[in-house]
Design a protein around this nucleic acid. Sequence first.
DNA 1: CAAGTGATTAGC
DNA 2: CTAATCACTTGC
Length: 198
Amino acid sequence: MKLSTRFFLRQDTLLIARSLLGKLLVVPDGEGNRVSGMIVETEAYLGPNDRAAHSFGGRRTTRNEVMYGIGGRAYVFFVYGMYYQFNVVTGPVDRPHAVLIRAIEPVENLELMTARRGGLKQQALTSGPGKLCIALGIDRSMNGEDLRGERVWLEQYKTFRESHVSTGKRVGIDYAQDYIDKPWRFWVTSNKFVSKSR
DNA sequence: CAAGTGATTAGC
DNA sequence: CTAATCACTTGC
């Protein structure tokens, strides 16, 4: 069953980032087959007050516009000339927070994911934000997509106790000054699909 | 470890 | 208009 809109409207984006661990991210292919993976790593981006966020200081551009919309939609952006990143927008209108999905563990339709990733070994399939978008077929056409729709959504799958969850600093935000060390990254402890820190 | 890649942004 | 940047990945 798809996650309710209420889930994405909780006040605390950090709590949402934490509770997304164990949820299933589902992106059907064009032919009615489910392709999915369990979320094992996330990062919270806390809007205007977070120097690492695209919406820092109230920055509002064509790219990050959906961050300013209602929670429960996809924020997909393109970076480094090659990769897409999939985020979930949280909170009410005009509170531009989002949670980046950094890694998933493949669950349904491994064959298709492997083919899309060029036949790499299993562990490399979805262990990073750009990799999982390739494996799931996520691109810019899903930016702004409602997560209650038919193109991409989240489902309850597993629950992890606090003792199985780790937190630490976010990856690839060296420009974020005093926000570099905020422990706003969450992952399933010792899960082998969690991305490598750089 | 460094190149690759091009959309996006800020600054003029 | 132009130049710099970038919430990354891969292959050397």
